[in-house]
C-alpha cells in the first residue's frame, strides 16, 4: 500500500499550485514557459495506469513545484526592467 497512486483532487490541486506559481514570474517568457511546461507534463502523465508510476510522477511534480517556487524568488531579484513586446500588445 506504500505506493498508492495520488487521488484525482490531489493531482488537480498540484496542477493548480503550479499555475499559481507560474503566474508570479515577472518575466513573460519564463511565466508562459512554466505554465506551458506544467500543462504539458500533466497531460503526458495523465494516462499513467499503475499506481507506483503515478505516485513517482506525483512526487516528482511536487519537487518541481518547489524548484519553481525558488525560481520565482530568484527571478524576482533580476526582474526585467522593460516588459516584453508581446505583453505590450496584450494591454
Amino acid at each position: 500500500m506504500a505506493a498508492a497512486g495520488p487521488a484525482k483532487t490531489e493531482v488537480l490541486s498540484l496542477f493548480r499550485a503550479f499555475l499559481r506559481t507560474a503566474r508570479q514570474f515577472s518575466d513573460y517568457n519564463i511565466r508562459e514557459y512554466t505554465r506551458r511546461r506544467a500543462a504539458d507534463a500533466f497531460r503526458e502523465n495523465r494516462a499513467l495506469a499503475d499506481a507506483p508510476a503515478a505516485a513517482a510522477a506525483f512526487a516528482d511534480g511536487k519537487q518541481q513545484l518547489e524548484v519553481a517556487k525558488r525560481q520565482v524568488l530568484v527571478y524576482s531579484l533580476y526582474a526585467p526592467k522593460a516588459k516584453s513586446v508581446v505583453e505590450m500588445k496584450i494591454q
Binding site: 488537480l12 493548480r16 499555475l19 503566474r23 500543462a39 500533466f42 495523465r46
Partner: peptide
C-alpha cells in the same frame, strides 16, 4: 474540456 482544462479555465476566470 477535461479536468486539467477545467483547472486552467477556472484559473483564467480567477485572473
Amino acid at each position: 474540456l477535461d479536468s486539467l482544462d477545467t483547472v486552467e479555465v477556472v484559473m483564467a476566470i480567477e485572473e
